[in-house]
Simulated scan of single mutants.
Amino acid sequence: MEAKPYLKEILLKRDLISSFDQYPFHIPAIKNLSSLQFHPDVTFIIGENGSGKSTLIEAIALNMGFGIEGGTKNVQVQTHNNASPLSGYLTGVKSFKKPVDYYFLRAESYYNVATYMEEISDEEKFEKYYGVKSLHQCSHGESFMVTLTKKLKGNGLYIFDEPEAALSPSRQLAALSAINNLVNANSQFIIATHSPILLAYPNATIYQLDETGIKKVKYEETEHFMVTKYFLNNYKEMTGILFDN
């Protein structure tokens, strides 16, 4: 019997929601949500800004016991209190076996988590877990990669919100390889992203959030793939149109 996916599915407790006209339940992707099943290896959540993908990924993470700003489950940093109430209306369907490792990587608050970890850890212990003496002595992208390649140990459930934010294209390729190494080490990823590079992970489940709700799509059907491919193949024409040249 396969242990993965550690998080099999989330269910929205629709009967407890008093109004679907209020935030965040008025967002089409949430309004039309009943359940969402996850791939044993990698599930992507994509959509335009405002489609609800970060709201959904945040709610999944909070429902699983992570702090709002990310890190391990032991990190409960909170420099702001703007979480939506969505997490309280979700039920997670889990595997018979718990993951050994957990991490919620959230690009927008990663700096706060890194600061907290350095404050509570002695230098020797910190270097043991991260492979560096300080994440703040690394660039933003380098610190992301340190977390991905050193901190995460495998047999884990990892939830990422826009991890590509600090990564160059070549570092995104390196991140893709690191993700695959962790998948091969019995890990599961749920990732909200805009990156056409990360989305290329083979056989992943991709959920697209839009004004009609949530639907499963193939990589080649995503706007990320189509727009990027067309632009790279026709960049002179596209920039001419954009700049009215």
Rank of each mutant, 00 (worst) to 15 (best):
T79Y: 10
L135F: 04
G70L: 12
P169A: 11
Y111A: 03
N74P: 00
N74L: 00
E108G: 12
I46T: 00
T239M: 14
K229F: 14
Y6C: 07
H39A: 15
R14P: 02
Q188Y: 14
I241M: 05
T222W: 02
S168H: 14
N155W: 10
L176R: 08
G47V: 10
I179D: 12
L36Y: 00
L157P: 01
N186C: 13
E69P: 02
L232W: 04
E69K: 03
P85H: 15
E124L: 13
L173S: 07
E142Y: 03
G50F: 08
T115P: 03
H136M: 12
E162N: 08
A204Y: 10
L209I: 00
A107N: 13
I45Y: 06
F104A: 05
Y235T: 03
Q172K: 03
S109E: 01
I17H: 05
K229Y: 14
E221L: 14
L11E: 15
F189D: 07
A114W: 06
S51P: 00
I10F: 05
K98I: 08
L152R: 07
F225C: 01
F66I: 13
D161N: 09
L167M: 04
Y89H: 05
K150M: 08
H140I: 02
S134T: 15
D210C: 11
V42Y: 00
K13G: 08
S19E: 11
P163E: 07
P24S: 14
R14T: 02
G71S: 10
G156K: 15
V132L: 01
E123Y: 06
S134N: 10
V100H: 10
Q208R: 09
L167W: 01
F126V: 12
G70W: 09
S121R: 14
Y235M: 07
H224L: 07
F189E: 00
D41W: 05
S170G: 01
A165L: 04
V132F: 08
C138I: 02
I159N: 03
G65H: 06
H194W: 04
G70I: 04
T72Q: 09
F38M: 11
K94W: 14
G65C: 09
A83V: 13
T43P: 01
M1C: 07
H136T: 05
I17K: 05
K151N: 12
F160Q: 06
K94C: 08
S87F: 15
L148F: 13
F104V: 01
G67A: 11
I206S: 13
Y235R: 06
T222E: 00
T91G: 07
M145R: 02
V113H: 07
L199F: 11
Y207F: 14
M117S: 05
Y207P: 03
I30R: 05
K218G: 03
E58T: 08
C138W: 02
E58D: 04
F104W: 01
G131C: 06
S168W: 07
V183E: 00
N184Y: 05
G131F: 01
